[in-house]
Write a protein that binds this DNA or RNA. Structure first.
Lengths: 191, 191
DNA sequence: GTCTATAGCCGGATAGAC
DNA sequence: GTCTATCCGGCTATAGAC
């Protein structure tokens, strides 16, 4: 969808996410945001109700997508490696769709006021489901006997920070990226 | 070293790093910092010259350690796997020493004013050396023929974000952590 | 070395004209 | 729906007493 066909409200959200990625929520002023959209700060309030509401909409929207996605993956009747590939693929897809929002999700969630608990719930649910997939794979013998927490940490960290990297490597096709990350994360780099 | 034996200046730096980790540089006020140290905001200025100087000291100190460390590792005459293990080990050691500073390095570098270019230089030098080690390993056949950028990205991301995780897992011995991460990152998780 | 007081500026948000 | 004008509170940093 082209920017020109977005509603002004959507344009404001997208621009805000971009600025939040560059400087963080606290350092972005409503005057910065207004200038980036091409209007005055007061005019923003015809489209949004507060700076805080912009943040919580951006973050909860993405967090909900991730949680719903992993619920679907975890309940599939298939092997662990297939599930992990689906998780990797989901991260790449959602991040490519909305890299700026992913940055806000990663870096600015602690500035949520009313919706902080809701966000933390979603994040915990996601992590529990992911850890469940890993544990299943260890029990079935599909995964190595490495410390579970190290494994959960290192895969999730790589996936959560894709937003830093995907926009710079636009020439990498999505399929190559999925394939490359699956090999690197699952089979390692050592020959 | 116990906190009580630190100079007030050092106490301020450490406290600031901790607060920066929790809320980000922009959201931490000099009043917050002063309250955490147990004095009034104005009194901070007997020990430091500005909020900005606190940030740049925290970040450049760590960035310098990392760059010097990888210079030493890269110039060793040894195989690639040994070098990569040394890089992993360095990250774990420096992060365990100063997890709050690592958070500021990762998340608040864009708020550096006078020293931003110096920081970017150090970071680029680090990344170039690291990529050099990876390329060497691919040429010598020690590493798989996976896309170099995917590999560089996924290892560096995991290492750079250890600060999120190391303090919560204090029960993990440093040696176990090094061993576990080396296996996970280098040999993968799939059996 | 810490305090109170305050300068000077910038923040989010609102009122009301057009 | 955008503007100008403005409120009011919070920000970093300084001045000067103790």
């Amino acid at each position: 969808m082209k920017l020109s066909t977005l509603s002004r409200k959507q344009e404001i959200y997208r621009t805000a996410a971009k600025l939040f990625k560059e400087k963080g929520y606290s350092a972005v002023t409503m005057r910065d945001l207004a200038a980036a959209v091409g209007i005055k700060a007061a005019s923003l309030y015809n489209h949004i109700t507060s700076k805080q509401q912009i943040l919580s909409e951006i973050i909860l929207d993405i967090a909900t997508q991730f949680t719903q996605g992993i619920d679907a993956i975890a309940s599939q009747e298939t092997d662990t490696i297939t599930k992990l590939k689906a998780v990797i693929s989901q991260h790449i897809t959602l991040t490519a769709d909305n890299p700026y929002g992913m940055a806000a999700l990663n870096n600015d969630w602690m500035h949520l006021e009313g919706k902080l608990d809701r966000y933390l719930d979603l994040r915990n649910r996601y992590e529990k489901k992911f850890r469940g997939i890993i544990l299943e794979g260890k029990e079935s013998g599909e995964l190595k006997e490495v410390n579970t927490e190290i494994l959960v940490y290192s895969i999730l960290t790589t996936l959560r920070n894709l937003y830093l990297w995907i926009p710079k490597k636009a020439e990498l096709k999505k399929d190559e990226l999925i394939e490359g990350l699956c090999v690197t994360l699952l089979q390692g780099v050592e020959r």
